[in-house]
Every structure is written in C-alpha cells, then in structure tokens.
Write a protein that binds this DNA or RNA. Structure first.
Length: 472
RNA sequence: GGCGGGUUGGCGGAGAGGUUACGCAGCGGAUUGCAAAUCCGUGAAGACCGGUUCGAUUCCGGUACCCGCCUCCA
C-alpha cells in the first residue's frame, strides 16, 4: 500500500497518514459562505482537497472515503446582502450555491459526498451548545451563548497562540457580557427581521464556528481523519472548532490531521477589492480562461506555499494543456496513471512534482492522458475551450464555421504555393503566410502539403478577414 | 507587539546531505524555397553571514527583504 505523508498543522510535522478506519476515511473541508461568487482564492483549498480525495480513493478504494464540505447559509454577510438588494435570503443562498457548483465543476473538482447546509443542522447545533453549557464550557449572557476559552486549557494549541498573548495583542471584540475577551459566540439573538430559530435562549442564530463542529460530528462522527481549509482559518475558526468539538465530545480527538493551504496572491499582491486585483473564478472563465487552465496554474505551486496568480502563468498553462490535448487526441487512456504521479502526490500532495512527471510522458500519450486525468486535467469533454467558436464572431459570412474557412484557405494556399514553386517567386506566398501567422494561425508547409492549425492565440476574426481577401 | 509562510538558474517551480528535477524562454544544429511547427543538443541557480560535516542549495543559528494571520476573507 502506498504510504501517504501529510504535513499536519496540529503536530507541525510531516507524518505518515494512518486512517482511523481504512474502510471509511473521513474528511471535512470548510466550504463557502454563500452570498456571492467564489473568488479565485476560494478555489485553492477546493482543488487541494479534490486531489487529496482522488489520492485517498486510489489508495483506500473509491467507496472507502467520505468527503464533506459545508455551505454556510446563515451569516450576517448574507443578511446584509439581502437587506441591500431587497431579495429573499433563501433566494440568494440558493443562487449562490448553484453558482458555486458551476464554478467548481468548471475547475474539474468532483462534488463531495455530502454538502450540508448550516440551516439544516440547527437542531444539532443547539444540542451541542446545550452539551457545552452542561459541561461547563459555555455560558449564557444577555441572550448570547459564549464559549468560555478559559475552560479549555488546550485553547490556542492548534494555532500556536496563548490566550494571554492574544489578549496582549488586544484586537478582540469588546463585549461587556464576556467573561474573557477571547470568549466567542456560539449563539446570538436575532431581531425580528433577521433569520432566527427558537432555542432555549430565545429566538436566535448560531455563531459561525459551531456550524462546522455540529455538521462534521453529524456526518463524520466526533473524530475523523482530515480537516482542512485556508491558513487564514487556522485562527480563530479552526481553533474554535477544536475547542467546541473536543469539549462536547471529550476523548474523541476531533480531527486527527489538520491541513492548511497557504494564501493566493495576484501579481505579487494580496487579492483585494481596494487594489483592484480582486476577481472571481467566473470572471476568469468569462475571459475564456479555461477551467483546466486555472486548475493547472493552481496545482503548479505546492499547497503549503504562497501561490501567485499571474497572467503569464495562465498563458503558459494554456499552451502546455493545448499541446497535451493535441498529443492525446483520440487516444485511449492507459489503465493506470504513472506510479511516479502517485508517489509525488503521496509525498504531501506534491502537485508540482506530479506535473513534472506528466511533462516526461510526452512519448507515451496514453500514459500521459491517464496520469493527467488522475489529477483532474485533460478530462474527457473538457476541451471546449480549444474549439473555434466562429458563429459567435460573424454570422454575416459565407462560411458556416471556422473549420470551413481553414479548409478553403488550405486549398488556396496550396495553389499559391504551387505557382510560387514554379515561378521561384515566393513573395505572394510569404505575404499570405506572414498574415496568417500574424493572426495566430500555425502554418505548416511540408512535402506532404499545407496544414493550418489553430493555436491558443489565434484571432479568428483576423483569419476570416484574410480569408476573404485571399479567396476573392 | 504575538503567531506563521516565503527567498532556488532570464521566468515559473520541485525533490534530495554528495550523482540531470521538470516546464517556459534563450542558444546551437537538423528539417524546410523560407519558418512561428517538429526533432536533436545545450549554457544557466540556490538572498546574506556564521556553524555542524570529508562535503550543504539541502541540517542548525543569526541577518535582510517580501507576504499573511491575530478584524466571523480560503
């Protein structure tokens, strides 16, 4: 059996992965709060986990892995969005969930086994909060229920902070009813116009952190194998989850391995609305950057390193995938991926290493295809982005589609070439060729004949214009 | 202030205490009427200072610079 090594934030070391139950390897990833399109950074943990799950299914069997990723569909940001737009909360969350699915599907990420919504687990959250109160880890104050961090000596362990240090830093919300400034909200009261549920503490709604503790326990049990998310969630979100879950289920251990991915930057800077470099996955797809190109770029940096999204990387990824697509066209994938791909992934999800292996498989397209598909690249039917979309460009033309233009051009060029060969005057042929290559077309002239190939940089409108001149 | 990440050849980006990462770009050659395609070949690195070692880009310590978290942003 392949030994998988993962860097566990909890222990700060890379260690061999030992499932609690090899018959059912269980993972939880913190999903999105559904009030808007997912931005590019949101995609990173999704892809990291997608690759991890593929690897685990390969090693332990497809039916022996349970992957849970939640939707947070009760949150003050959602309320704010509803208030700002006058729309119904449910309508917003449903729409955003559908967007999220569309966008992550486009990146080739498989859907998790369970995608629980917070609003469907309110009962479990209330029960968990009651348990925490009973066990002396939480208290009610002015309609709120707060977690008492001083009741959990381990608090701060995961993120490597001590409560006292954090208070010294003193950037915590001040609330007069808190026993300790670090205490965080498990339940808070709702106004009449805010979403709320009846509870022992009045009508209210859950705090953010309790959602993940309740949903993971409901679907995976009080202890499971791997919990992940962006490094920015390590504190406070994951720290608070640990506190809640460990105190509600003493001795259970909660998540065995914690996996945190580093952050994503854009052109060397943090992605932010104020810098104007903020964009969503959908923005990129709309700019005709293919989902698998985005996936390639995100997987080409190891998950524990800061990742920089640049246009240059997207261009390079596009060219490589284009080449691989041509290479594997009409090829049946090999039965299994190259062992070195598995080996690279087993070594703390070394996706750049796995991609390097792919580069060495150009002489074996079937193996390249099987290996690329293992990490979600070159998926069947994922080559839409390579196809010419001439109809969208010009409905006036005599040509029905771009392939027809290419065929006509090819014949015409062959004529011009034959004349040039006879007269030894290549000027006209060279001009035509220069025009076409200028429009991004690849012109191959060999003894066998002339071949015109579309490249990622082909400007169809320009080619069409040249064709009209040449064929007139 | 506290906690954490990064610094590798022109660019991107890994592994490994001593033997080629890999890709892109470049350069040389083959091929071609020509070539932007293809094929063959090829130069180029490890922020800085010190330590451990026979030997460090790889381990340890320090310095510098960049970045993130500590504000329910992955």
């Amino acid at each position: 059996m392949v030994e998988i090594r993962l860097t566990n934030t909890r222990t700060r070391t890379k260690q061999a992965f030992q499932p609690l139950d090899p018959q059912n390897v269980r993972l939880y990833l913190c999903g999105p709060t559904v009030y808007d399109r997912a931005h590019l950074g949101n995609a990173r943990p999704v892809l990291v986990f997608d690759v991890l799950v593929r690897l685990l299914r390969h090693v332990y069997g497809a039916d022996h892995v349970t992957y849970v990723r939640n939707f947070t569909d009760v949150d003050d940001k959602i309320n704010a969005r509803a208030a700002a737009t006058g729309r119904d909360i449910r309508e917003i969350t449903e729409e955003t969930v559908a967007w999220y699915h569309d966008d992550m599907d486009a990146l080739g990420a498989d859907r998790p086994d369970h995608e629980p919504r917070a609003t469907e687990y309110i009962v479990q959250m209330i029960a968990m909060i009651e348990t925490l109160i009973t066990r002396g880890h939480a208290y009610e104050a002015e309609g709120h229920v707060l977690f008492d961090v001083r009741s959990f000596p381990e608090y701060g362990r995961l993120s490597g902070r001590s409560v006292d240090d954090m208070i010294a830093g003193a950037r915590v919300e001040v609330a007069p009813f808190k026993r300790d400034p670090m205490d965080f909200v498990l339940w808070k009261p709702s106004e009449a116009d805010q979403p709320g549920w009846d509870s022992p503490w009045g009508r209210g709604r859950p705090g953010w952190h309790i959602e993940c503790s309740a949903m993971s326990a409901a679907l995976l049990g009080p202890s499971f194998d791997i919990h992940g998310g962006g490094i920015d969630l390590q504190f406070p979100h994951h720290e608070n989850e640990v506190a809640q879950s460990c105190c509600a289920h003493p001795g259970a251990g909660f998540a065995n391995v914690w996996l945190h991915n580093e952050m994503l930057q854009v052109e060397g800077k943090k992605m932010s609305k104020s810098l104007g470099n903020f964009f969503t996955v959908r923005d990129l797809l709309d700019r005709r950057i293919a989902g698998e190109v985005i996936r390639y770029v995100l997987l080409s940096t190891h998950y524990r390193k800061p990742m920089d999204w640049t246009q240059g990387k997207a261009d390079e990824a596009r060219d490589i995938l284009w080449q691989w697509r041509l290479l594997t066209k009409d090829v049946e994938p090999a039965a299994a991926p190259h062992p070195e791909v598995i080996e690279a992934l087993a070594n703390d999800l070394n996706t750049p290493g796995a991609i390097a292996v792919l580069h060495r498989l150009k002489d074996d397209p079937a193996l390249l295809l099987a290996s690329a598909r293992f990490i979600g690249l070159l998926q069947a039917g994922g080559d839409d982005w390579m196809r010419a979309d001439y109809q969208a460009l010009d409905s006036q033309s005599a040509f029905k589609d771009f392939d027809q233009i290419l065929a006509a051009l090819q014949d015409r060029l062959a004529d011009i070439r034959a004349q040039a060969m006879a007269s030894k005057d290549f000027s006209r042929l060279d001009r035509a060729k220069a025009d076409l290559t200028g429009a991004g077309l690849e012109v191959r002239m060999s003894k066998a004949g002339i071949e015109l190939l579309v490249r990622p940089t082909t400007v169809q409108r320009d080619v069409a214009r040249i064709a009209e001149d040449l064929l007139a």
